[in-house]
Amino acid sequence: MSTEPATEKVTTKIWQETASADNPFVASNCYCYGYNVYDDVLLQANWIEYLYLLFIGEQADRQQTIVLQQLAIALANPGPRDASVRAAMNAGVGGSTTASCLIAAIAVNAGQFGGGREVYSLVECIQAMDMDLSQWLAYARKERIADIDCLWPETNHLAGFNPYQKTCSEIWLKLLTHVASDTNMPFCAWLVTHYAAFENITKCAMAKSFVCAAIFKDLGFNSEQAEALYLLLSLPGAVVHALEQKVSGWRHYPFFANGLDLAQSTLNAVSSEPVEVCL
């Protein structure tokens, strides 16, 4: 058995460990950005403060902690009508593994329509345009569409605006106006002032994704961190609904028994000759 010290290492600014005296594979102390996690952080910080430290590398101030906590509560349960929660419930109701419920929720909540990728795109837009009203008005007029990567399907809506609503949901507007009262949330305050103008131009409601992106930006998260936190913070609701449906069972869960209709053109094709071979 090899006893040579490991040569390939994982380089990190986040985490440091000291080894246990009797076992090099066991940590006796863990430090997150220099703070002793089990002797210090655990006794003094709350989970939101620790989460902020993990992402940003510094302690959050009191206001940042309060705002992130409010956002975490707002995101924690998107509710059983939400696509990501429905995905998790679909896994749960069939008796799938708990991990697959979480994976299902993440995969669906990752999208560009109300999902993590929309938040990512919006944080990128905020970084690029900041509070330049003329640029944002041009964006709202669809003169500027977020870059499309061919890995992601094209979308038909403008990131940040929900085409199925005329005005922003009260719940998300409440959160935005509440956090915008803090002087350290300049983009949120700016958005409170201007969102109605954007809604007027787009004829669509400011979406949850825009509110979340604004808060993430003002808290100092970059686009990828915002995308990740949006996904992470939305998981608790998804998994509790999945676990509930696992107990409740598939007989009590929608299947759309009479909801799927095969198009006439497809029905007609069934009895026809096999499709032509491509040569």
Partner: peptide, 20 residues
Amino acid sequence: FPFRVDRINYKGPEKRTWKS
């Protein structure tokens, strides 16, 4: 491929104390 503790190459801030 288990990782022993010294496989972590820490490049972050020095040890510090949490401010309540």
